[in-house]
Amino acid sequence: MPPLTRWYIKSALVYLTAALLLAVILALPINLPLFIRYMNPAYFHLFLVGWVTQMIFGVIYWMFPIITRAQPRGNEQLGWASYALLNVGLLLRAIGEPLVSTRPEAGLGWLLAVSALLQWLAAVLFVVLAWPRVKEKYRGE
């Protein structure tokens, strides 16, 4: 299993744990702070982007047909960039979204724009990386 895949899958498991812990907190029968209550979309996306999508990315990078023996999985740097962008972008959202919702006057809306751009770039880079691997099994040159 390549190192990038290990990072993807371990991160995915951490996000799944975090998402479900957040779900527990959101279900507590107490008067939750507004900041926490505004983390409902964060809960969804920690699960769907952090866990599901990241798990898929890790397994695709690992298991899809290789391109050539010399560079089996394409440009690995692209994969690391995508990994970093996705995770920084998602964490920024998890903090930024409730921050912007609780303090709309603070002028922090740009945090969400940055988070959006980072996650979008992560998806574009990943598709660029994985697209050539959607192919027949490698049978030598």
């Binding site: 912007v100 809306g109 969400l112 724009a113 988070s115 959006a116 751009l117 996650q119």
Partner: peptide, 9 residues
């Protein structure tokens, strides 16, 4: 990404 940006700006 457009929706999230829109939420902030």
């Amino acid at each position: 990404a457009l929706l999230l940006t829109h939420k902030g700006m």
